[in-house]
Design a protein around this nucleic acid. Structure first.
Length: 322
RNA sequence: GCCGAGGUAGCUCAGUGGUAGAGCGCGGCCCUGAAAAGGCCGGCGUGGGGGGUCCGAUUCCCUCCCUCGGCA
């Protein structure tokens, strides 16, 4: 029996240097990169989401980047569907190219490499998500209106009756999750806490390897600040100005940089303040990402100094894979 | 050199004779269909140095050091 095919994840906080290292590793392993990112999926958000460069995209195939219109909504479940397909395609491609070299392909042939920083997306890929179709905008907006009128505690009490387990897990102020849980119950008639136990993900079929890149906090923050500076030099202001003229989906409009620059355009503060806010919010984001990753015990942590050559790191990862 | 103001958390500052708070910053955590989102928790401090009064000083007094403003 052949060993399970391998899938690699390269994750890490924002600005840690994932893209470069993923490209280097992909070259070394002859892999293809699949974005693990909720924002790079959108077209026309290039600078603001720090997409890989044209050179990088040319040297190694990248997937699920710049494929969705700004007005389109997007979420985890969509991501999972797309990605599973992509994974299969890539794996098949690898096998087709040289049937007689199956062994070699499995060892160093086309390998899918997920690269990005969206922890939830990774979790849902690896561990799965429940299958029931349970999304209804009307129900959701109704619940939202109720919460506005009666307060979140009213809905929280309702949830307690319907799904005490979920209520136990969710904080009374976390209105988004309260609404989601009630929405799922209304649609399916089943408590979300029960559904959430039914998961099936990549880990059941493939060998998963997760590398999380990290570096000292102050160094990371320095890199974040520098990157934001660079984004401004590359034309962030123009890009966001253009974005604000278009209709943005809720997800797209959440990219860090949009609301911060909007405040500047509206004259609420100056450009320096807008930059400060983008930098700070990116730091907070990085911190939350690390919290998320830390609890995943499957992760193989890779500490960087901040000045490492991507090729060297890729070599290090490659050795760990052997 | 003289006069005035001030030295309290990483920063900006409040307050009190019974060893301290606020905002921002920062740290920790949660997360299953908005996740670059959303929610929760935490003061993280030799109160400029030294001496005195007092049962007790960050608070009152003296002195030294430092910073800022004004006059020379």
């Amino acid at each position: 029996m052949l060993p399970k095919e391998r899938i690699i994840f390269i994750i890490g906080p924002t600005a840690v240097g994932k893209s470069e290292i993923a490209v280097s590793l992909a070259k070394k392993l002859s892999g293809e990169i699949i974005s693990l990112d909720s924002m790079q999926i959108y077209k026309n958000m290039d600078i603001i989401t720090s997409k890989p460069t044209h050179g990088q995209m040319k040297s190694v195939p990248h997937h699920i980047i710049s494929v969705l219109a700004l007005a389109k909504e997007y979420n985890v479940s969509q991501y999972r569907k797309t990605d599973l397909k992509k994974v299969m395609v890539i794996l098949k491609k690898g096998r087709k190219t040289s049937l007689e070299k199956v062994k070699a392909i499995l060892r160093k042939g086309k390998i899918p490499i997920f690269a990005g920083g969206t922890g939830l997306y990774m979790s849902v890929l690896i561990d799965g998500i429940f299958k029931e179709k349970a999304q209804n905008k009307i129900i959701r907006s109704k619940l939202y209106k109720i919460s506005q009128k009666q307060g979140s505690n009213y809905l929280y009490k309702k949830l307690k009756k319907v799904d005490p387990q979920a209520a136990f897990k969710i904080h009374p102020n976390d209105i988004r999750r309260i609404i989601r849980a009630l929405e799922v119950f209304k649609i399916t008639g089943k408590p979300i806490s029960a559904l959430q136990r039914q998961r099936q993900g990549l880990k059941d079929k493939y060998e998963i390897k997760v590398f999380c890149l990290n570096m000292k906090r102050d160094k990371l923050y320095q890199r974040i600040d520098q990157r934001v500076e660079r984004m401004f030099k590359q034309g962030l202001i123009c890009e966001v100005k253009r974005l604000l003229k278009k209709r943005l989906s809720r997800t797209a409009s959440c990219a860090i940089g949009i609301k911060e620059l909007k405040g500047y355009f509206l004259g609420q503060y100056d450009l320096a303040e807008a930059k400060r806010l983008i930098q700070r919010n990116s730091r907070h984001y990085a911190k939350r990402q690390l919290t998320w990753f830390r609890k995943d015990k499957r992760i193989d942590w890779v500490n960087l100094s901040g000045n490492d050559k991507p090729i060297k790191i890729a070599k290090r990862l490659w050795k760990k894979l052997c």
